[in-house]
């Protein structure tokens, strides 16, 4: 630093405050680091509470009972804790919603990224985003007060609270997520790849189905998994439209109770601290967490395993 290469700059016109710069650098690092740490610590805190209370729960209810009981009656005098009653409802509603969101979302994404003219795209894309901005409570009432009565015209057996309309509306809710993430994946397929297909005499449809979709597969699947994980955790729609009747099985016409709906029910009522009802809350929360966490891990793995790299 002391060498004066050019020779014509007077010594003393440079006085960098190295020590001060270093000190500021350290302080900035600490500030940013602590902000980052807050979110990590929060996660650890939530996880620790979940684990701690869940262990407390399993001290009173054996895990075999939790997994094999066929009824879910923690609030009754004769308590049974068959978690699969709630899991089956959650899974059924999630599957219904994915069956709605997969075709709707994927076809919208293909339309937006491959077929729409820039003008149509400018109209369609914001409309999809509006769908994503509708509050879930509105979706819930829509399912309960509009979709269910409408479906009852065709399906007289359908009860007032049911998994079907909750699942359908939940599917509409997660469609923008599938569409938007899938469109990103389709958009990321390099132009050169499509040109290659066209140059071999492929039509647009052949190019989309044989080249673009396979190349974007990992992104599309991961968008679906993330949407599923969103559906599994969704609360408001299922609480309002699917009912609060723990039923084991996969009948979409009758009221069911999902894990999230149960948590709402308990937290709305007054389960005193330390009671078994209170601890049940955490056991269910933990199950929910494990399910969504597993989905997210799977999605992460899938993307890394199947992503094509085009330098």
């Amino acid at each position: 630093m002391t060498d004066n290469v050019t020779g014509d700059i007077a010594p003393g016109s440079w006085s960098p405050k190295r020590d001060r710069a270093k000190a500021i650098q350290t302080i900035v690092k600490i500030i940013f680091g602590s902000f980052a740490a807050i979110s990590i610590l929060t996660t650890i805190g939530i996880l620790a509470t979940l684990i701690f209370e869940t262990i407390e729960f399993f001290k009173e209810v054996p895990i075999s009972q939790f997994l094999t009981d066929t009824r879910w009656t923690p609030l009754f005098a004769s308590k049974q804790f068959g978690i699969f009653v709630l899991v089956s409802a959650t899974m059924m509603i999630s599957v219904i919603s994915i069956m709605v969101a997969l075709p709707l979302g994927l076809l919208s994404a293909i339309c937006l990224s491959e077929y729409a003219t820039p003008r149509i795209r400018r109209i369609l894309k914001p409309m999809l985003e509006i769908l994503a901005g509708v509050p879930t409570v509105v979706y819930g009432y829509f399912a309960l007060l509009t979709v269910t009565p409408f479906l009852q015209i065709f399906l007289p057996d359908l009860q007032g609270f049911n998994a079907l309309s909750a699942g359908l509306v939940l599917g509409i809710m997660i469609t923008p997520m599938v569409a938007s993430l899938s469109e990103d994946a389709l958009y990321a397929v390099p132009r050169s790849l499509k040109d290659g297909a066209y140059a071999l005499g492929a039509t647009k449809r052949e190019t989309v189905t044989s080249v673009v979709l396979p190349a974007a597969l990992s992104g599309i699947v991961s968008s679906l998994i993330l949407a599923t994980s969103r559906a599994v955790g969704e609360t408001m729609i299922v609480t309002l439209a699917a009912g609060a009747n723990p039923t084991l099985g996969f009948n979409p016409f009758v009221p069911v109770m999902t894990m999230t709906a149960f948590i709402v029910q308990i937290t709305k009522g007054d389960a005193p601290y330390g009671t078994i009802e209170y601890k049940t809350l955490y056991a269910v929360g933990m199950t929910l967490f494990i399910m969504t966490f597993a989905l997210n891990i799977f999605s992460f793995w899938f993307v890394r395993r199947f992503r094509e790299k085009y330098d």
């Binding site: 050169s192 790849l193 040109d195 290659g196 297909a197 080249v211 396979p214 190349a215 094509e308």
Partner: peptide, 8 residues
């Protein structure tokens, strides 16, 4: 093409 573009 300019850049090799084999399909995945």
């Amino acid at each position: 093409f300019q850049k090799p573009n084999p399909f995945p």
